[in-house]
Computed example of a mutant assay.
Amino acid sequence: MNLSVLGQSKKQLENQRKKYKSEIAQLNRLLSTAVKKEKNALEDLKDLNQKIAVRNKLINTIDLEAKLLSNAISKNEKKRNTLNKNLEILKADYAQMIYKSYKSKSQQSRAMFLLSSQNFYQAYKRLEYMKQYTKFRKKQGEEIVIQKNIVEKLNDSLLYQKKVKDTLILVEKNQKKKIESDKQKQESLIATIKKKEGKYKREIKKKVQEDKKIAARIDKIIKEEIAKANRLARAKNKSKKPVSKNNNAFILSPEAKVLAAKFEQNKGKLPWPLNEGLIIRKFGVQPHPIFPGITINSTGIHFVAPNGSEAKAIFDGEVLNVLIGSGGTKNVLIRHGNYISSYNNLQNSYVKKGDKITTGQNIGKIFTDKVSKKTKLVFVLFKNNKRLNPASWIIRR
């Protein structure tokens, strides 16, 4: 591995390590507030599983970083040994040259060496030789100083790298201890859950069905909003050009086309729908994190955030609708041309239907569950009435 690749890999691992440490700190801050009641056993186990998963990632990263440092230290030690050998050779050559020079001076002076020349040309050549010899001696002395500095810098680098490696190993040991502690808690929670496994499974299946109904209701409302918007678009269309009767996609005005194009250009660069948070559930069909055989179809991304957090608009647009859920929580739908962003599980809404919205604008306070004490935001993204994976659109953190 060359030095540039080594440096790049080292930097990437350092960044990963910092990211996982930050994520663990967030997990501890955002997920440890749950009240320890029987009702929270499943939530606690999911939180614990997530912490263990991130700690394992951190340990693997530290392990790779330590191995990379070990390789770098080994290469540097070989390089230092080679430089030390070269330095010893240089010193020996220099000492021999000084000795010969001293011996030469004791036998005859420089003046006698020049005066003994047979002619002017020979004297000139002898003078040039003496100059070159002096220059060579000076250069060898300088080379020894340079080599000595290189060796000293390598020694300093090795000492620093060894300290970094020792620190990483200590951090790794500490994380392993914490994982062992987490696993003991995990086993205890699993034992608690297994006692009433049937009950928990029924509750989960009921929640899955409720989520399906909510998703179907939102799909219906979006289809109605598209149909309504398209009726208005057709009414405003004064030209004789035929307008599509398809109500599965928005009829876009020139302004809406521009907005949609800008939205698309920002794919992968859109801001998160909240200032601070962690993703606790990804988009799409996935197995339940605890019970095998139960499948979850996540319509968007689920975030957990600090208590009191607010949802923020990811792009300019217009409020398409503000929906009210069965528990009184709100879901704000914002239209961006033919794209819709949905911010669900809000305690209240700061906006109403028809309001113009700008990127980063606060649109509502996120609801905090009274039992789990968690503040969760469900963020969903649509193109017309088709759901998209929000992770592909928002910036990676």
Rank of each mutant, 00 (worst) to 15 (best):
I62Q: 04
F120N: 12
N266V: 07
K37R: 07
R17W: 01
K238C: 10
Q107T: 03
K10L: 01
A95G: 09
R137P: 08
G360Q: 03
N60R: 15
K177E: 02
A249L: 15
T295R: 09
T134P: 09
K153Q: 12
K100N: 12
K207M: 13
K238Y: 08
S22N: 05
Q161C: 06
S181N: 13
N345Y: 11
K185W: 00
K10I: 00
N331R: 12
G300E: 00
Q140M: 10
R110A: 13
P254I: 06
P242V: 14
G198H: 09
A305N: 10
G328L: 07
A95H: 13
E143A: 10
P273L: 07
N385H: 13
L159W: 00
V351F: 00
R396Q: 15
R110W: 10
L42R: 13
Y99G: 08
K223L: 13
R231N: 06
L69T: 01
N230E: 05
L83N: 12
K163S: 01
S117E: 02
A391L: 15
K356M: 09
K165Y: 00
K383Q: 15
A66Y: 02
Y20T: 07
E203A: 14
Q16E: 01
K195E: 15
S106V: 14
I73W: 02
L154W: 00
E203N: 10
A25T: 14
L6H: 01
L159G: 08
